[in-house]
């Protein structure tokens, strides 16, 4: 009768058998298994990976120089020898420019989310964990930003700051901080009131330790998924800013900007003119589907 009386004597083996029976897969194993079964998510992941890799290794893949113009090759149709996807209004190789364009477009789309995730996540964590007046202050400021439609806000801030990649990223970051803060705050508030956080406090741990060990691990997941779902919006907004001349400037290859400069050629060679738009569309769509797939895979009832 040393430890648990019920476990003494003969039934022990039986107990252990029962314990083994309860054993199931770990969380990440379940998530991985679910992703494996989800074809749409797999395909989206692969497509996205290809887009990203080709943008990163553009120097190795691309056949031509993205800046090399040629008056003779202007607006060549798709399939022209040496120009598999045709040429743009300056006679530059479309395929090359689309590959290189991915660099800026993805960078301008993803980096605001990464920065907003860091800033908004921290703000939401602080607001949710501390509650009270701090929460009130942070959340009311966010509400003010929230009152504007995101496109309008991005254009307004970019316009005020002036054109340029840096300014475009700053404005997009400001657009995405409020929604991320809000989601983080609500998740944190829910987690904070759970018994295990109380138990951690009862064991004498300080706030920072509790946040690090108990809150972050439970808040990051849902906020991360939410942030990935914003990337698609961000890519569209970034391209939009460039399209309006508030982002990159010519002759840089960037999908939004390319769409703008090819705009006049739409009656001459509509297929080539539509290509940058198609890239924006597909990238944004795959990001969206991937984030949806992740969301449902990670929604394991623990």
């Amino acid at each position: 009768m040393t430890t648990a009386p019920a476990l003494d004597g003969k039934p022990r083996a039986a107990v252990d058998a029962a314990q083994v029976a309860v054993r199931s897969r770990g969380y990440w194993a379940t998530v991985a298994l679910r992703v494996r079964d989800d074809k749409v998510t797999i395909v989206c992941g692969i497509v996205l990976l290809l887009i990203i890799l080709s943008a990163v290794f553009a120097d190795l893949i691309a056949l031509a120089d993205p800046y090399k113009a040629s008056m003779l090759k202007r607006l060549k149709p798709i399939g022209t020898p040496g120009y598999p996807l045709g040429a743009d209004e300056m006679g530059r190789d479309m395929l090359t420019r689309l590959i290189y364009g991915g660099r800026l477009s993805l960078f301008m789309g993803i980096s605001p989310i990464v920065i907003a995730f860091a800033i908004g996540g921290s703000l939401g964590l602080v607001a949710g964990f501390l509650g009270g007046r701090v929460n009130m202050l942070i959340m009311r400021v966010m509400d003010i930003f929230y009152a504007f439609p995101s496109v309008l806000l991005a254009v307004a801030i970019s316009g005020a700051l002036g054109a340029g990649i840096g300014n475009a990223i700053v404005s997009l970051t400001l657009v995405f901080i409020p929604p991320i803060t809000r989601v983080t705050e609500s998740v944190t508030t829910a987690v904070r009131s759970l018994d295990y956080v109380e138990a951690a406090r009862a064991s004498g741990a300080g706030s920072l330790t509790i946040i690090r060990v108990h809150i972050l691990s439970n808040v990051l997941g849902p906020v991360f998924i939410y942030a990935t779902s914003l990337i698609s919006v961000s890519i569209i907004l970034a391209s939009g800013l460039s399209f309006l001349g508030l982002g990159t400037e010519p002759p840089e290859p960037e999908w939004g900007l390319m769409l703008n400069t090819l705009r006049q050629s739409i009656y001459v060679n509509p297929w080539v003119a539509a290509l940058p738009g198609a890239m924006i569309f597909f990238t944004s769509l795959t990001f969206n589907l991937l984030s949806d797939g992740l969301r449902s895979a990670m929604d394991v009832r623990l």
Binding site: A6, P11, A14, A17, A18, A21, V22, S24
Partner: peptide, 25 residues
């Protein structure tokens, strides 16, 4: 007390579900 835990309903044994906890099994 009855030792052990209630059965996992996703993998019930083909026979008596109580057998793993039963002292007369």
């Amino acid at each position: 007390a009855i030792p052990g835990s209630p059965p996992d309903m996703t993998r019930l044994p083909p026979g008596c579900a109580f057998a793993p906890r039963c002292r007369y099994a």
